[in-house]
Structure formats: structure tokens, C-alpha cells
Design a protein around this nucleic acid. Structure first.
Lengths: 246, 246
DNA sequence: TCTAAGTTATTTGTATGAGTAAAGAGCTGA
DNA sequence: TCAGCTCTTTACTCATACAAATAACTTAGA
């Protein structure tokens, strides 16, 4: 199923590959579902048969199914078996599901939907951050920005700084659920960034936009921060679309 | 822990109490964690000890832990045991977690955070819906609105219509991740609505605001839809704050 | 013939016990 | 002081048996 090299080599910050068997099985099945190899409504083979087929114990298999069930991908009942639920019941913002979706070659429309959501959420978060940021937030963002400038997005450490920059903004917004949402999206952004890097070098220097955003938040200028983040996401979308077509 | 009657009597649309043991244990522990009875960093008792204490088999207990782990609440490793993760790693937008949070008497700040997120997401969703709605969407919304007017929010069927109304808007926005986000929030909204109802009758007729929103979406007026939804959420927040203080 | 109650068979759910593998703690030697 | 080893605790995996739930079937009664 995955003769495709390259993915495994990328070290994710929170991928938590979790080499445990139940984790691997959940991951494999999750990817298969998101890839459409099991469609909503499909009934999986029975526990005994399927676990034998996967060469794992029934216990491990069942724990994998519990994981998928917790994320809304499947639903099991006695007698009827375990079936894939309707797509509308999937927790598409779950970090694992997003990661799996990107491993399964996400559709272009899915990526566009994610960017649409970013365009809604992140400017608002930036605005809140400009309103509520503390001195600590500012210094952290400054540090991240500096590292980002020094190493660039082509390096692991540079991407980590980018993530840290965005993450600090979301922390500064002081909103737990919003933070959770952003973490998920951030994971997806990481993947799209990697996508971009895999095709070609980034065609544009991302630093100026980041600096404008940073200045706006430091100044506490709410509307400027909102506008700067809007631009930033828009440009990221443009880059992504470019690399998808390329 | 909960001598407080009333919760169990409320029939939720998708509560899916799932009377299976692993589900109950996950629910109980999840509520305990969200209530702060187990704090981030705390280590749970060992599998054997804890499962005996809970009077369930290790199998069922472990499946419960897998569920919590899938939602980011806990993390288990050999030798270290199972510990509650940092709050920032929790999937606060997971429908189950939101439900558990409300069972655990959510803090006022948490509710405010949720409304803040609604204020960001739902007006944008309404705007998208005004842009993309189909005839089917319109007729569904109209039907829901009518039922809502007929039965009122004090009845089960009326609340279902309210949910259906909002749900259709989010469907009309044609964005999977946004839809998933909204479903989670919708669940929370259900709870806050019930909260409101428990204290006192709703002090204000919600229908006019809903009708204005409906008309805007039907007319395809993007900005009007955005504004109408903004008002609607703002009023809902005001009502909720009122009933929290009462 | 149709309906409703009861029965059966199939599938997931729960329990238990044995053994494996991972990872922190402590020891040992340089 | 520190690198490496052993030890021990803990979750992880496996196999097996049995229980519970429920869709499908069967049968009794009208």
C-alpha cells in the first residue's frame, strides 16, 4: 500500500508514531478510511477474521477500533459489526485525522476548505492576540521570528520556529477551544508546508509578511493584526495552489 | 460526585450513552479529568489496581483509556504509567469532550471562550451559506424555522428544529472541516440552551432574529447574513450570561 | 395470510491469566 | 563524573473462554 518513500523520513513534531501495535493498526485503518478504501456505510470484516488477516491479536485490533471510534470514523454494534460512519460524523479537526488525511493524498477541495477555515479563524485569533498579548508572548514571537529568518523554512529548525511563531499568537489569544482548533490546523499547515517544499523551493520570501504581523501585534493594533494575518494566509494559499498545480 | 439530579433525565439527540462498559468508564474518567479531579501531570493508578477498583476487567479499562488517549486527555507509556496530559493537548472541540465538560460544571470562562469562538466562526459560516445555499437548503431551513416557531425552545422538538436550522446553515457553507467544527459547537450550544431553560423561561422571543437571518440567506445577501448571525450569537451570549448570574 | 411473540445464531463485548517489551532507576566500573 | 549495564516496574500483547446484544428466523395465534 505504501511503496511511496519519503513520508516516513519526515520527522513530525507531534506525530507520535507510537509504534505500539494498536496505534499502528489504528493509523493504517484510519488512512485507509480517509483514502476511501473503506467508504462510509461499509462493514469491516469481523473481529476474528480481520485481526487474523492483520496478524495481530483480537485485543490489539479492538483497541485500534476503539481509537477510530473515539474519532468518529467507525461505529460498532453486536451482530451488525463495525461499519464506517458518514463523513459528516468524522472529527475532521482531530490532529490524527488531519495527519492521516494528508498521508492519504488529500483532495484539492479539502485543502481549500482548510484554508478557508484558516482565513476565518486565524485573522480573528491575530486580532485577539494583538489585544491580549503579554510581554512574554512578544519576546517569544520575536525569538521565533529571528530563528525563522536565520534558518529559513527549508530547514527543520526553521519550520519549528514558524510553528512556534503561529502557536504563540494563538496562545496569546487566550482562548482554549480556539487554541485547540489552531493546533489542529497548525498540524495541517505543517503538512502543506512540507508539500510545498517537496515540489520546489518556496518562490517568495515569507519574512516580510511575518514581520508586519509581528509589528502589528506588538503595537496592539487589532485591525492591523487582522489584516496582516489575512494577507499571510492568502499568500500561503496562493503558494499552495501554485505547488499543487505544478 | 453527582447527587445533582436532572442531568440524567435530559435526553440528548446524540448522547449515545453507549451503555457498554468501556464507554461508561471512559465517560466517567473523562468527566473526572475535565472536572479537575485528575489534574494534568497526575499519574493514574496502575491498570490492575485501577480496573479492580472500578470493578471492571483490564480489557474494558484499557479500551476506555484508549478512547481517552485518542482524544488527547491521557498518555500511557510502559514503566511511567498513564498520566493526564497538559490541557493544551486536549481536543477541546471533540463532541464527547465538550459534553463531558458541561457535565463537569464548566467554568464561566470556558463558556465565554466558546461563545467567542462562535462569534468568529458562525457569522463567517452564515456568510458562506448566503453565498452557496441551494434550494434544498432554503426549504430545509424554512421548515425548521416553522417548527421552531410552532413548538418553541422549551420543547424537545423545538430544540431539535433549532439545531436543524443551524446545522443546515453549516451544511450550506459547503466546508467539511468547518462543518465538523460547528457540529461540536452545536452540541455545546445544546447544553447551554438546556442550561438556560433549567433556570428560567427564556426571557426573549428568539424567533425574530432567526427570521432575519433566514431572510438574509435566502436573499443571498452575504453581509446581511453575517450581521444577522453576529446579532444572534451576541444575544445568545447575553441570555446565557444572564442565566449564569441568576 | 398476516401479525406478534418467542427462538436462534452471529457478532461484538467482557473477563482472566500468562507472557513480552519498553523505559526509568539504580548500580558498577572506569 | 559519567558511560554503560542490570534490574524492576509498568504497560503491551496474546490466547481463550464466556456473556450479552440483536438481526433474522420461526412459530403460534388470529
Amino acid at each position: 500500500m505504501r511503496g511511496d518513500p519519503g513520508y516516513e523520513d519526515i520527522k513530525l513534531p507531534l506525530a507520535s508514531g507510537s509504534r505500539r501495535i494498536h496505534g499502528s493498526v489504528a493509523r493504517d485503518l484510519g488512512i485507509a478510511i480517509l483514502a476511501g478504501r473503506y467508504a462510509p456505510g461499509d462493514v469491516l470484516p469481523g473481529e476474528i477474521e480481520f485481526s487474523e488477516q492483520l496478524k495481530v491479536s483480537r485485543t490489539a485490533y479492538r483497541e485500534a477500533i476503539r481509537i477510530l471510534s473515539a474519532k468518529g470514523l467507525v461505529e460498532s454494534r453486536p451482530r451488525t459489526g463495525t461499519r464506517v460512519t458518514q463523513r459528516s460524523r468524522w472529527n475532521l479537526l482531530d490532529p490524527d485525522i488531519l495527519a492521516w488525511a494528508f498521508e492519504a493524498e488529500p483532495s484539492e477541495s479539502f485543502i481549500r476548505d482548510l484554508f478557508e477555515l484558516r482565513m476565518i479563524v486565524e485573522p480573528a485569533a491575530a486580532a485577539l492576540a494583538a489585544e491580549r498579548r503579554s510581554g512574554l508572548d512578544i519576546s517569544r514571537m520575536g525569538h521565533a521570528l529571528e530563528e525563522m529568518g536565520r534558518y529559513g523554512l527549508a530547514t527543520e529548525i526553521g519550520r519549528a520556529a514558524d510553528q512556534s511563531f503561529h502557536n504563540t499568537i494563538l496562545e496569546a489569544a487566550r482562548n482554549g477551544p480556539l487554541m485547540a482548533l489552531s493546533s489542529s490546523i497548525a498540524a495541517a499547515v505543517t503538512w502543506t508546508t512540507i508539500f510545498k517544499q517537496r515540489r520546489s523551493a518556496l518562490p517568495r520570501d515569507p519574512m516580510p509578511d511575518h514581520r508586519i504581523l509581528y509589528e502589528a501585534i506588538v503595537a496592539g493594533d487589532i485591525e492591523a493584526a487582522r489584516a496582516a494575518m489575512t494577507d499571510l494566509v492568502r499568500l500561503a494559499l496562493a503558494d499552495t495552489e501554485l505547488s499543487l498545480k505544478a
